[in-house]
């Protein structure tokens, strides 16, 4: 690991100041992704800003708007096991439990989960070019080994995927992110947080220099999906593997008709993949296979496979149907019993 300066921040303002003073500094909290990347030489910050002692970044609290505020430092496991999250936003708890391992979920934080980097093999391998790691050097995943890679929203510069399960649920629930920075606080819609690669794949998200995530906000209207949701994750082994395709499905069904729907995909794009047209296609319909198929077609419009992942297009279509069926039936996918009902 390359040597670095260590800065233990005692407040958000202090952390922001430290980030502004050292532009290549990185925030460290759970360490599960950043320390790993530093060992590989993919991340080589000259300074780390330890934010784990900042009390205001802790806690899960009810908001004035009637939702929940999850502090950036709250570990993934704490979110998944929180009674309010389980009762009001069970899709989020389920998605978190679909990812990583108990040890990693104990250490990994809410803010860190958002900011984790792709697990593209070429991004990790400093012996190969990678536009995300070294802008302009090329993308060997295009024409290379690309089983884990994107089928939607990719560019000629990068076909990496965002690896998070938690973020797929947060996208579906319409969360917001509260950040603090040199120009004061602001709130970012979840859909606007992560980026598509375009011609700047080195930028994963829209966080500006010196900004730090303070909290994730869950809106009260997303509680309407607590009765009909499912997080279905398909992968090469049943535990502790990144998604080939995952689906977060959430429905609000009244008198047999869908009055609101949310649908997001993981493992298929540079960000959780959501398209409002697909959700609109469900609204007003009975919760049946015809409606689900129409939504799947909308959500996967324009999907394009590569040498090793074209199968993901049909896999995603079927997973969408299955997850919506599970959600409609009120029988969400178990993250312990991996049989798909």
């Amino acid at each position: 690991m390359k040597r670095f300066s260590y800065h233990r921040a005692d407040s958000v303002a202090d952390a922001v100041q430290a980030l502004c003073a050292t532009p290549d500094a990185r925030i460290v909290a759970g360490g599960t992704n950043l320390v790993d990347l530093m060992k590989y030489g993919v991340e080589t910050p000259s300074a780390l800003v330890d934010v784990t002692r900042i009390a205001s970044l802790n806690g899960i609290d009810d908001t004035d708007e009637g939702g929940l505020r999850i502090g950036a430092l709250v570990p993934n496991r704490t979110v998944a096991e929180d009674e309010r999250v389980a009762a009001r936003f069970p899709l989020l708890a389920s998605a978190i439990l679909a990812g990583a391992t108990p040890q990693l979920r104990n250490a990994a934080t809410t803010g860190g989960n958002l900011n984790q980097r792709t697990r593209c093999y070429y991004f990790y391998d400093t012996k190969t070019p990678c536009n995300k790691r070294e802008p302009g050097s090329g993308c060997p995943a295009i024409g290379g080994v690309n089983r884990l890679h994107a089928i939607l929203g990719a560019s000629e510069h990068c076909i990496a995927t965002h690896p998070s399960d938690m973020c797929v649920a947060l996208a579906a629930l319409g969360a917001e992110i509260r950040v603090e920075g040199p120009n004061g606080p602001r709130r970012i819609r979840f859909a606007d947080y992560h980026r598509l690669p375009g011609d700047a794949p080195e930028r994963d998200n829209t966080l500006q220099p010196g900004e730090i995530i303070e909290a994730v906000l869950l809106p009260p209207e997303a509680e309407a999906f607590a009765g009909h949701h499912s997080y279905l994750k398909l992968r090469d082994r049943l535990s502790y593997a990144f998604a080939l395709v995952s689906v977060a499905a959430a429905l609000d069904i009244r008198e047999g008709r869908i009055v609101a729907a949310r649908l997001a995909l993981g493992g298929v794009a540079h960000k959780p993949w959501r398209r409002e047209e697909a959700e609109a296609a469900l609204v007003g319909s009975p919760a049946d296979e015809a409606a689900f198929a129409a939504a799947a077609t909308q959500l996967l419009e324009g999907a394009q496979g590569h040498e090793h992942n074209t199968f993901k297009i049909e896999l995603a279509r079927r997973a969408i149907l299955r997850a919506l069926g599970q959600a409609a039936a009120g029988t969400p996918q178990s993250q312990t019993d991996k049989r798909i009902a």
């Binding site: 360490g31 599960t32 320390v35 108990p102 040890q103 250490a107």
Partner: peptide, 13 residues
């Protein structure tokens, strides 16, 4: 009391 991968934790923290 929490199980953690010690390889990914910095001692200084």
């Amino acid at each position: 009391g929490q199980r953690i991968n010690s390889c990914l934790q910095l001692a200084v923290m």
